[in-house]
């Protein structure tokens, strides 16, 4: 089972590396959204510093959302998903593999890019460390929860907007705890509780989301 999961991860990573543009576009989108905010609210340093956690997290949320379209859609179009559903390995496990690959392709690069953007907003080193820790956990949760929305809207007209409508309300706890952690550090408090809650949310979604995504994929293939 673990072998099959690792195989799916390797396959998705190999496919993404052959078309580097797709993964890179998500990161470029992240940078652009973040740099739109100073243009919108003005270059005042104190204001931007206090808004930075929220801005970075909302941008990460939107980038994760945009990349969801690539999670199942190509495999659905060329029939790979159907073969996965037919395979002897449980579809839930293969889903975990696909979600992990999605996280490695979007969540991890976002986390690596975030410190540079955080410096533009003049965040402290402690806050940046907590931001990265939060993003690393939080983007994984976003990938898991988002997979449910992506699977439910597979092959539907207007799937992209619809999956945003389904998934964004479910993303709210991640946003609250993620940016809350950074705000806590900025105001001199301990961020451990926020990060632990974020991890708890991730664990709950690891339990539920693969099952829900697998059922939704089977539904789309019927």
């Amino acid at each position: 089972m673990i072998g099959a999961m690792a195989c799916v991860v390797r396959r998705d990573l190999a496919l993404a590396l052959r078309r580097k543009g797709d993964a890179a576009n998500t990161l470029v989108f992240f940078v652009i959204v973040v740099s739109l905010f100073p243009l919108g609210v003005g270059p005042e340093r104190a204001l931007l510093q206090s808004m930075a956690p929220g801005i970075l997290w909302v941008a990460a949320l939107l980038s994760a959302l945009l990349s969801l379209a690539r999670l199942f859609e190509p495999d659905y179009a060329d029939g790979t998903l159907e073969q996965m559903a037919l395979s002897v390995e449980p579809l839930t496990v293969l889903m975990i593999g696909k979600i992990l690959a999605h996280w490695l392709l979007t969540g991890v690069p976002l986390t690596l890019l975030a410190p540079v953007l955080a410096l533009q907003f003049d965040l402290h080193a402690d806050a940046i460390a907590v931001l990265c820790a939060g993003l690393l956990i939080g983007t994984a949760a976003l990938s898991f929860v988002g997979a449910v929305g992506a699977a439910l809207t597979l092959g539907l007209r207007g799937g992209g907007v619809l999956s945003a409508l389904l998934v964004l309300p479910l993303f709210i706890p991640v946003l609250i705890f993620g940016s809350g952690a950074v705000v806590a550090v900025e105001s001199g408090l301990d961020a451990t509780a926020h990060l632990q809650l974020l991890a708890a949310f991730l664990l709950v979604s690891v339990v539920i989301a693969p099952w829900a995504a697998a059922s939704a994929v089977r539904l789309a293939l019927d």
């Binding site: 449910v148 479910l170 609250i176 709950v204 829900a212």
Partner: peptide, 24 residues
């Protein structure tokens, strides 16, 4: 069936969302 999956995922999330919003 799709609505059912969404509603079940949603109903698990409702208390989580509520408490996270209270805390926020």
């Amino acid at each position: 069936r799709a609505g059912a999956i969404l509603a079940l995922v949603g109903v698990i999330n409702v208390p989580i969302i509520y408490f996270s919003v209270v805390w926020w």
